[in-house]
Write a protein that binds this DNA or RNA. Sequence first.
DNA 1: GGTCCTTTAGTGGTCTGATCACTTTGAAAC
DNA 2: GTTTCAAAGTGATCAGACCACTAAAGGACC
Lengths: 243, 243
Amino acid sequence: MQFLTSEIEAGRLRPGDRLKPERELAVELNVSRGSLREALKALEMLNVVELRHGLGVYVTLPQPQVLSRIFGTLISMQPSQSEDIMDARVALECHAVRLACRNATRRDIDRMRRALESLDMQAGESGSRNGEHGAEADHEFHSAIVESTGNATLVFLYSAITGLLKRGHHERWLSLFSIQDSWLALNDVHERILEAIAARDEDRAAAIMAEHFDVIAKILAKHQGQGRFASIAFRPRGPRQPG
Amino acid sequence: MQFLTSEIEAGRLRPGDRLKPERELAVELNVSRGSLREALKALEMLNVVELRHGLGVYVTLPQPQVLSRIFGTLISMQPSQSEDIMDARVALECHAVRLACRNATRRDIDRMRRALESLDMQAGESGSRNGEHGAEADHEFHSAIVESTGNATLVFLYSAITGLLKRGHHERWLSLFSIQDSWLALNDVHERILEAIAARDEDRAAAIMAEHFDVIAKILAKHQGQGRFASIAFRPRGPRQPG
DNA sequence: GGTCCTTTAGTGGTCTGATCACTTTGAAAC
DNA sequence: GTTTCAAAGTGATCAGACCACTAAAGGACC
């Protein structure tokens, strides 16, 4: 177990590599095949390794969505604060939008624009599934920004975080897109973010992104009383207690 | 395997509960004890259960540090550049320092101050293990900031990220603390960050933190040519290629 | 009566060896 | 040349045994 993870982290085993047969590996590591299999199955659970029947054991490249599934199971077991998760998202996105200003290609910007157009269309209607589509388009816009950074780590963290938010607080998130006046405010801010990115003005982009999360926080706070998190200018919590 | 996770997610099994003995459970689920153990060990890897020798199998509440270990292993397999990881750190810390301004207690601030004092002491000497101690004190200072936010998710992500940086780029990181003039620049910035946090001035704190990472990036760039990452004002990379 | 030690039952940890199931490969049959 | 099928290599699972650890019951000693 320890052996395999350290081998992988040291880079001696790389995604796609095939491990030696179980029987052989067990002899080398001086453990029984049963014990080795316990470790392999455990690593398979983490998606570090894939056991293919009749073929062998392969080192795999964990996909972000797989990671967020694991995260979901784990965090669903602890008293996670949605505000905490949301704050992590704010942190990632406010910096991501700066990197986007530097690295976004024309294609990236087109993708963001399409997402906003889709969001606009949803805003006109007010059907029952309105929130669903709006949330999707919103997510597409923000994903486009993060992915345009070209930073694999940020993308990875972001997808894990948003996966969590989606699963755990889906209803509350959707409700944001059912509140009438939120559309106007959000769409305006979105447009200005895109504008700033296109102008490669990262200070402005970051400032508007921060403002964006403030707007969300305020809308949620106003309409739900509890749906608040600590974004940049919004401070629902007092100082922590010593301890 | 499927059985246990669904039982847990459904809430029928709760943290602290003890499962039936392996032999008994294996009979009930119609699998051999070996197969059951493979599943249990896999779940143990996710920290969903804990196998206590001589006692039994217990459902556990995952601890953040264990999660971040797993997370770190997974991230380490992503094709990320060290600049990418560093940028994620910048993102987390620049927002964390804002939250620190709101939530840090007197104890938190004392802890930061002690870390800086320790850092000062290291600066005076110039032994061979100087870099080691300096890096440790530096890490303590930054950890204190992130932990003072009271945001479990941020702490979690931060420890995963820094764990990665430490493991994968230890030497380069240490070298920063062996460069003579870096001490002066870094210590000054550290002091000003602490000052801003104590004054609860989050805009200033965030600005100085950003500057801090700029300083690091510039020092590394100057002394190593390659040790650069994209911090807020420092832009080593051109626009991404359309892909 | 109380304290300490030993024993014992219950449990996870590991090992061994066998058998089943899946995949690929290459030889044989056509 | 194509198809068929048998064999080799591999993971999947099983059964049974024994080891190691823990806690509680029981007895020995003070």
